[in-house]
Design a protein around this nucleic acid. Structure first.
Lengths: 138, 138
DNA sequence: AGCCTATACTCTCCTTTGGTAAGTAGGCAC
DNA sequence: GTGCCTACTTACCAAAGGAGAGTATAGGCT
């Protein structure tokens, strides 16, 4: 499907990678995106939609877990705005709204996949580190 | 949305996990870890230490960008607690404190690597999606 | 002696963000 | 009529986070 639009700056950077360093312009842009995408609720909603496909508002909330309706609405709207989720409204009563990942959302889900695997793999080490930290006086 | 009354569909799914699916106990644990690790500052600090190796407090802050000292202190301490960064204090005046990634931190950095590549690859599409969203009346 | 500098915080105040609980719309079953 | 269903809003309050000033103190300069 939609191939990544060739970004000349990124391509140039990849062709001549400075000592493992990003160029400042792209770096700033990327940091901005990271700031929007790297939050708890975005990641959890992404996971829920990845695992269960299309979901209605309330179902989505249940799968995410301890999220307030306010944050669910807000986060999902932000994700829609960023082209990560598709929101389909059926004009019926009672209302019916379905959420699913777009192609772009699925690529992000794939990117985050490594983080989930990491969490699954190392959560025991984190617990251990935390205990050690507490014991030497945090 | 707090208590999540037992949803029969969810329960059924947990009883018979589809292939390549996490078990609910580990899943909850993982979600908790995601909640701690998936925040803007943690990711940006991780990136800074990955790119530049050992850094002192003020240098780290400069590399991260627009972070307040309060959040830098807090986030870095949390990361130390979780075993992601090592904090070395030299008892000299003026004070000197060095931060670097632990082995565990480096594995997390590697896991997040995919997200940075995603952001670099797709930021143009996000901008486009946002513009389209605004035009059809956000 | 007195003063200044450097660094890694910490503290106080204030703004922004997020949670909680109570609406709201409106067709349908009763 | 009453109540129910669902996907939101809204009002209010608590918590998180930013801005800027303050702290400690060895060494250098005057």
């Amino acid at each position: 499907m939609k191939k990544a639009l060739p970004d000349p700056m990124i391509e140039a950077r990849r062709a001549h990678p400075p000592p493992a360093q990003t160029d400042p312009v792209v770096g700033a842009l990327v940091d901005e995106i990271i700031g929007r995408v790297a939050d708890k609720w975005t990641m959890l909603i992404l996971e829920a939609l990845e695992d269960h496909g299309t979901l209605r508002f309330t179902q989505l909330g249940r799968h995410v877990g301890d999220i307030s309706q306010k944050m669910l609405t807000k986060t999902v709207r932000q994700m829609e705005r960023d082209g990560l989720v598709a929101r389909t409204v059926y004009p019926v009563v009672p209302p019916r709204v379905e959420y699913s990942l777009t192609e772009l959302g699925r690529t992000l889900g794939a990117a985050f996949c490594g983080v989930w695997i990491w969490a699954e793999t190392y959560h025991a080490q984190i617990e251990a580190a935390r205990k050690a930290f507490a014991e030497r006086g945090g």
